[in-house]
């Protein structure tokens, strides 16, 4: 397979474009750098279809998707932003939930393009929680039967390069995290890196490997029993509804936009926006405390950890 050029096809389903906006705020590399080619290994990447940023419109835009479908844009990575509705439900009354393009009086649903394009993609990436697991549109009672790519294509589904669906979760996913996942896949396609290791919900472990509570800048306050009781205080946010103990994300540690921000970092709470159940139980009501069970486990672990770390420090240094 020629890897001189790698095409990116970015579809939007039931989404809000937040993942796109976040992507334009990445820093190292930034999106411009990826597209112009910061180094030979990360070059020749073209964003051929993206409804919000592409120069062309109307039938010229639809033609890009058709060219991908006929193999003209091989190899391509298919990226989806937004959830996938159950179009059979809309069809019962002759309608649709989500259309991407029209040609000669015929409309095409986002489902049509996923069905057409996923099978020949070298990798399929879900950008954001909606595309990964359904997210907000899938929130109870899920009026449109929305789901994410993981359910739509299935856990056993594999791309042309034998890769499963890759979930860049987050609402939105931070641009920095997304760009790193995309670059990782480009390097995988080119044989520079092995495929990213994934967790049970298909999230790359190098981004989502730890729980928020563990890497939170306020975790030290938790360990000392210092809790914020009012918003504005600098301590652990657990009493005010933080879901850090049950959510996987690196944002509090590395910030959200060029190193600044981070939900708990600034004094807000984690609402678990990277998780498959978001925005339903146990992540909402957002201002309600996380289930008590997790704290019992965490507290026992932390106590043992404290003692062990203390003992280690009492030992004589050997170097």
């Amino acid at each position: 397979m020629s890897v001189e050029n790698i095409h990116l096809i970015w579809l939007q389903g039931q989404g809000c474009t937040g993942d796109t906006v976040a992507l334009t705020h990445s820093s190292h590399p930034d999106l411009m750098g990826v597209l112009t080619g910061i180094l030979p290994e990360v070059s020749g990447i073209t964003l051929d279809y993206h409804p919000t940023v592409m120069p062309s419109w109307g039938k010229d835009a639809v033609e890009v998707l058709e060219r991908a479908a006929t193999g003209e844009l091989d190899p391509y990575i298919l990226i989806l932003e937004g959830a996938i509705p159950d179009e059979s439900k809309a069809k019962e009354t002759g309608g649709f939930w989500c259309v991407v393009g029209e040609k000669e009086g015929k409309i095409y649903t986002v489902n049509h393009w996923i069905d057409t394009l996923a099978k020949d993609a070298v990798a399929v990436v879900a950008a954001g929680t909606c595309a990964s697991y359904g997210g907000i549109p899938r929130g109870n009672p899920n009026p449109t039967g929305a789901k994410g790519l993981l359910d739509y294509l299935g856990r056993k589904w594999r791309s042309k390069l034998n890769l499963p669906v890759i979930c860049a979760a987050g609402c939105p996913v931070s641009g920095q995290n997304l760009v790193e996942i995309l670059v990782h896949l480009v390097l995988t396609v080119r044989g520079v890196l092995p495929p990213p290791e994934l967790d049970e919900y298909h999230r790359p472990k190098f981004i989502y490997g730890y729980k928020v509570h563990r890497i939170c800048p306020r975790a030290g306050f938790f360990a000392h029993g210092d809790d914020s009781e009012d918003f504005g205080e600098p301590y652990c946010m657990g009493l005010l509804g933080c879901k850090g103990p049950i959510a996987h994300c690196n944002v509090p540690a590395r910030g959200f936009n060029s190193g600044v921000g981070g939900c708990t970092t600034v004094g807000a709470i984690c609402i678990g926006c990277t998780e498959p159940e978001f925005p339903d139980h146990p992540f909402s009501p957002f201002l309600a405390k996380a289930p008590a069970g997790v704290y019992v486990k965490d507290t026992i672990k932390e106590l043992i950890g404290h003692i062990r770390a203390g003992l280690h420090r009492l030992k004589r240094r050997e170097i």
């Binding site: 937040g18 705020h25 939105p172 921000g261 600034v266 709470i269």
Partner: peptide
């Protein structure tokens, strides 16, 4: 990007800020 960064400083992240709550702001 610099505008969004202002929203991130006070809001924790942007798009979709975290720090707006009933009764004020969740911001140290």
């Amino acid at each position: 990007k610099l505008g969004s960064k202002i929203a991130t400083i006070f809001g924790g992240k942007h798009p979709h800020v975290q720090a707006i709550v009933p009764g004020g702001a969740a911001k140290t």
